[in-house]
Design a protein around this nucleic acid. Structure first.
Lengths: 202, 202
DNA sequence: GTCTTTATGTAACGACCACTACAGATTTAG
DNA sequence: CTAAATCTGTAGTGGTCGTTACATAAAGAC
């Protein structure tokens, strides 16, 4: 049973406001999105924002956490559902080409672009750590495939992981620079030609 | 004959101050670098800055113009000195791996990272236009090689240009995320495996 | 009803932003 | 020498930043 809160009830829908904050941060980045921009986008006043979400940095952290579980979940899904790292990265890049350009939200990836050149080093670190963690995750999955003979023995897992991440990051910036889904899909397809095919286990 | 200025002479070296402004913008980006940061880095007062360089945006434009002719000239040199687009891009990415990480200046590329998420749209456009112009230049050189039979007939010049630019952009962000020259060189090497080799003219 | 709790709107806080008015300093021109 | 020109340092301009104090409103507890 959900017991009702004691005091005056909140006059706005918290998840909706969080989503609107996500859109604002996604489009303009952490630094350029002012609290005034946020209150306007969320349709609430500053005290309501601070009461419901804490300060700007805490709100951003919550935005990032929900983003990676929704808009940013395609990468994890690809690795969870595809058997090989090659198929996972190929699917991730292919889906990114469309997700980075689809209407209904800003172009590109929030994790890649929202905290570049940030005056608060901790905020920059929030996204940088996620990007580097993703690279480490790619590397781990590639290494497992190399050890399983799924990829050639000479394959460098770290280089292939970094390469794949670099293409994803480049695609995000190009989406923000105006690239179309088709153009990005062609980039993703080109990138997969750099991947070795088959290993000792074929 | 160089006639001396009429009034009180400038007390600082203009090119040196411009270089120090370049370092500040390169490291922190346009938005995050305040005029106060600039005057501190350049060792001059705000009125001197405004008298010598105009406002912040004008100074940034001059910084970008000198940057692309110095630190950012390696791409143009590669295309000017290498015969094929493939060799030019391979050399450009290989040199970028070192330039993006060498000591003495901030990591990555100013044109790629200094005006991401900028509250002044015109400033964002300054760098975005340069990035897109570079892609168009890559595409043109690749198309010429395809037409000359230097690259396979089925090659998509636009896709290969965008792919190459995406790798460069990803390498820049990874340099800023802490990647080493060796790691980026491996990314560049991996990227070149996506390039077709030889054409009808072999 | 009153008390407590929580949310709200108004209206401000000090700090910093890009930028500049102004007076004094330092030069050449005559 | 004086006059004109240019640069320099001080000290500000109005505006926006992130954040919050305060009084009021709206709910449950009793």
């Amino acid at each position: 049973m959900v017991t009702r809160q004691r005091g005056r009830p909140r006059s706005f829908d918290r998840p909706t406001a969080l989503e609107q904050a996500t859109m604002a941060f996604w489009e303009h980045g952490y630094e350029t999105t002012s609290v005034s921009d946020l209150t306007r986008a969320m349709g609430i006043s500053a005290p309501s924002l601070y009461a419901a979400f804490g300060d700007k940095k805490t709100l951003f952290e919550e935005v990032v956490e929900t983003y990676v579980l929704s808009y940013g979940a395609y990468g994890g899904r690809a690795f969870a559902e595809e058997v090989t790292a090659r198929d996972a990265v190929g699917r991730m890049l292919g889906e990114a080409a469309h997700l980075f350009t689809e209407s209904g939200h800003p172009p590109g990836c929030l994790v890649i672009s929202a905290a570049v050149n940030c005056s608060t080093p901790e905020v920059e670190a929030i996204l940088r750590d996620r990007r580097n963690a993703n690279l480490a995750f790619f590397e781990d999955r590639i290494r497992r495939d190399v050890e399983a003979g799924e990829l050639p023995a000479g394959t460098d897992p770290r280089a292939l992981a970094r390469f794949s991440g670099a293409v994803l990051q480049g695609m995000s910036q190009q989406a923000r620079d105006g690239a179309t889904a088709e153009e990005l899909a062609a980039v993703a397809e080109a990138a997969m030609r750099a991947w070795p095919t088959g290993g000792a286990g074929e």
